[in-house]
Design a protein around this nucleic acid. Structure first.
Length: 236
DNA sequence: ATCCAGGCGTTAT
DNA sequence: ATAACGCATGGA
């Protein structure tokens, strides 16, 4: 079995605090680390616009490199779409043009517009139920958990592709576990703390980019000792 | 040029 | 239940 606590400490020691979610709108705030532009423990509560930005980013990053999402978000903000109300003022066609760099732009424009209308249409800013989020077109398990965790401070663990691949390799399995299976593994072995879940996910993504992505690179990996794959195949 | 990137919804076995 | 497929851009 995987020692999730130990792995977390290894990742944090190696990569340092990531400070997710990376908010474009706070990229030049004090506390900006020059890379992820997240704040070190949140210095101010999220505004409505920032929650909107997180929802938008979570949808736009589906199966997409974050760099491309940044381009799309920058175009959105430059066009003045910095709050959910602004979104309802433009057409899907206009939105498509703005989010094009993030790929799947037709689907994403339509889904983002619809999801934002549902999530921000009312007056209430209370955290939504997970099942309610899953009922929204364009919001699947990972997007729902991202929104819950980063936009509504609700401790739901994100078991994205990096995470499932990471778990598969740590355990030396041949195939990745199901989303819910992996999510449950972390939620059952960790204290349900928003900051812990948020940072853990950010660290796994960082780790995936450096060592444990589709292209595996075990040399210099901070998790080698507790990893079946890392011990088995030496890598260069 | 091929592969990959912080998935999801629909349709077919 | 599980698998296959379309959706699309941009960087390595």
């Amino acid at each position: 079995m995987i020692d999730t606590g130990r792995v977390y400490r290894e990742l944090l020691t190696e990569y340092g605090y990531q400070g997710w979610w990376p908010l474009y709108s706070r990229r030049s705030s004090p506390g900006h680390d020059g890379r992820g532009y997240g704040l070190s423990p949140r210095q101010a509560p999220l505004t409505r616009g920032e929650r909107f930005e997180i929802v938008a980013g979570a949808i736009l990053t589906q199966n997409t490199n974050w760099k491309n999402v940044e381009k799309a978000l920058e175009r959105l903000f430059s066009a003045g779409i910095d709050r959910p109300e602004r979104l309802s003022e433009i057409s899907v066609e206009e939105l498509e043009a703005l989010v094009r760099p993030s790929g799947y732009y037709r689907q994403k424009a339509r889904r983002l517009k619809g999801a934002a209308a549902i999530l921000f249409g009312g007056e209430e800013d209370r955290a939504p139920d997970r099942d309610f989020l899953l009922g929204i077109s364009g919001i699947g398990p990972e997007t729902a958990d991202s929104i819950l965790l980063y936009a509504y401070d609700t401790p739901s663990f994100i078991a994205d592709l990096y995470t499932r691949r990471f778990v598969m390799r740590l355990a030396g399995e041949a195939k990745m576990g199901e989303y819910e299976t992996v999510r449950t593994l972390f939620e059952e072995t960790l204290v349900h703390d928003v900051s812990l879940f948020a940072e853990y996910h950010a660290l796994i993504v960082r780790h995936g980019k450096e060592h444990c992505g589709a292209k595996i690179r075990c040399s210099g990996c901070p998790c080698r000792d507790g990893c079946v794959t890392g011990r088995r195949t030496g890598d260069a």
